[in-house]
Design a protein around this nucleic acid. Sequence first.
DNA 1: ACATTCAATTTACATATGTAATTTATTTTA
DNA 2: TAAAATAAATTACATATGTAAATTGAATGT
Lengths: 120, 120
Amino acid sequence: MIKISDAELVVMKVLWQKGEATSFDIIDNIKENWNESTVRTLINRLHAKGAIEPVKKEGKTYTYRSKINEEEYRIVESNSFLKKMYEGSVNNLLLNFVKQRKLSKKDLEHLMNLIDEEER
Amino acid sequence: MIKISDAELVVMKVLWQKGEATSFDIIDNIKENWNESTVRTLINRLHAKGAIEPVKKEGKTYTYRSKINEEEYRIVESNSFLKKMYEGSVNNLLLNFVKQRKLSKKDLEHLMNLIDEEER
DNA sequence: ACATTCAATTTACATATGTAATTTATTTTA
DNA sequence: TAAAATAAATTACATATGTAAATTGAATGT
């Protein structure tokens, strides 16, 4: 699995959200956080890692897209987080959120309905 | 907030589980994964960061304990993970687990009961 | 008291990461 | 086509991290 750093992830998010984006699209989207040069480094590293790829060149400007599926990435990361912090137990994690009042009965009911729907 | 690396976390877990532990307790517990010297480095770094503290010295051997509460650490990490991967939405996270069938109606019912109990 | 042992401390070193400046090479313009 | 502009690529550098060997210094045995 390709390892993506926190800063790199921000670039990935732009790509996931936009589908495709030029270096400038990316830079514009996150320039409050980073210097253009920094963003270009992140783009290059992601490219070197094989997480993104250029799909087009116009003038000197490349357009990139992600080679990693966002949903799958989330799943892998969530599972490894779960393993690392909660011995792999979803219930332990949820207990945590219940205690913090970040998870209400209404939320749970809503999820139940979703499960029902999926079952059908 | 003190930042604890993945390898360091393994040391913290031993301390959390045991309450207190000598360097050798720690080394023994995780020696399948790391060289003694490596574990000592981790202990030293955790001490330097203020995450653990020596509570006793016997001969040349120190006994350590964690200065960080496990529960709180979990909460902080969970929230930052949530923010990083799910825009802070617990529901988005859960949806993910429902899709993976890692979360069943039974689990949800169980949680509801817990909430009921807490409310009382 | 002195030598020996051994836990602790220091040093080492490669790779990753955040952050950005500098250089290069390709376009575009005059 | 020569000069200027500029996107991309390269280089830089400090800190973090995984990994462990080398050194030190305090206990302990003789």
